[in-house]
Design a protein around this nucleic acid. Structure first.
Lengths: 245, 245
DNA sequence: CAAATAGTGTCTCTCAGACATTATCTG
DNA sequence: CAGATAATGTCTGAGAGACACTATTTG
């Protein structure tokens, strides 16, 4: 990475940065937010944990999203996740091998739907609670920052959208959905406001079924299949963090 | 680009996609939104217009933002613009030379502040009104899509932020700021609501000066220097386009 | 004075927040 | 019945929209 190649700006350089994609795969486990992590089997950072990621295969991937979708499918078996592009990070220091770029996506996977499968170079794969990163377990490369960035973006997004429905199983109660909002935002939401807002949006289909515990049964809802995104006009105000400036 | 190289996923491939950055540089000219465009002097697309862009120089750029900042400085002489990462596009077809990735940034430049300078491979450089793309003049590569994407993002952002102040000269009236909002959104905004909103945010510093034409003079404001971003709690509702779904 | 644009007063409406209240289940 | 959670009733307040109105300049 120290070649002194003379180049002009608008021609291709012989020294290209390494380029990869990473996918922050979120799901809910035991009422906690978790991400899929893989233990590296090769250097650098051998034995440490990372997010799911890999290189673009220019022969089989038609675009970057296809690469992300492929990696996600290889690890989870899920074909049509809620998958969005998050940030792109590129600098000289994030990979000890030299200047590298990663395009980060994040995916939301319904709770309890995944059969994990490790790849050729991964000796282990597991769900890790977001809460345990970076305290108990720090990720390799700049993956802690990548996770934090995606989480900030997700948090900001759910203040005015229904994307957390993609973390829910097929049938769920409004209280369960609210729990997911609260655990991502780490704030309590008033139940009446929340229900009024969600129901008014007409995103959810009430069903005939109820979930019964040792108390009043709760009505089960499901997402109307054709609705992927929905943006509320106003934010969940009480859950907004302070201004940047 | 047709080599059949065998590779595993987590090792680097010998065939890396080409990687570049593009910067959509917005400014206001004659009360219209304009972007900086450059005429290509080399193939492919020789003679056609493109956005400002170029390759990462791994020797001098510490990160991707530095590359974007450098390209912008080379073309406009501006060192500290309002510059944000927009989208990253990568696929097999956007560049006829093969699989390529571009990280797109957009910049907001105050009106009438720029001394343009062409680069070595650019035979011409000019501001182009967004309104004239793609009608009168279509851009090379997928730069029309890049522009559209950044514009959509900018539009969405200004519904709840004050970023358009970065398109204003040092001193400006509230009506002039409103004009800029209206021309980006292509919608009229109620003047009273707009003033109430902007003034309540306390982003702007009123000055002693006024702008006089043949009518009542308007007070001139300036952005408080320390405020780069500000997000309103609620959107400019009347200017919101329909739901996606 | 008229014309023009700057700037204000003020009413309505929507919707988030707060919180008290009622409903329906199990044991 | 009590305990638990589901679900509703209803008041307040912030702030967007609408639009009539007043203020200040030039000619």
């Amino acid at each position: 990475m120290n070649d002194k190649v003379k180049h002009t700006d608008e021609t291709r350089q012989s020294i290209l940065p390494g380029i990869s994609i990473d996918v922050v795969i979120f799901t809910i486990i035991d009422k906690k937010l978790a991400v899929l992590t893989i233990k590296r089997s090769i250097e650098p950072f051998k034995g440490q944990w990372t997010l799911v990621g890999g290189y673009v295969d220019t022969h089989q991937d038609s675009d970057l999203m296809a690469t992300a979708r492929r990696k996600l499918y290889e690890k989870t078996g899920i074909k049509t996740p809620y998958l969005v592009q998050s940030q792109t990070r590129g600098n000289a220091i994030r990979d000890p091998r030299g200047w590298s770029v990663t395009i980060v996506y994040y995916a939301l996977i319904p709770a309890n739907t995944v059969q994990l499968s490790a790849g050729v170079n991964a000796s282990d794969i597991t769900w890790t609670f977001v809460h345990d990163i970076p305290n108990k377990m720090s990720l390799a490369f700049d993956h802690n920052d990548i996770l934090t960035g995606s989480l900030v973006q997700l948090r900001s997004k759910i203040l005015s959208s229904i994307v957390p429905v993609h973390l829910m199983p097929d049938l769920f109660t409004l209280r369960e959905l609210q729990d997911v909002y609260e655990l991502i935002l780490n704030k309590k939401i008033d139940a009446k406001s929340f229900r009024r807002r969600i129901l008014a949006s007409e995103i959810l289909q009430p069903t005939e079924k109820k979930r019964t515990d040792n108390h009043r049964p709760a009505l089960l809802y499901q997402r109307k299949k054709h609705i992927i995104e929905y943006n509320f006009l106003r934010h969940l105000e009480s859950a907004i963090p302070g201004q940047d400036s």
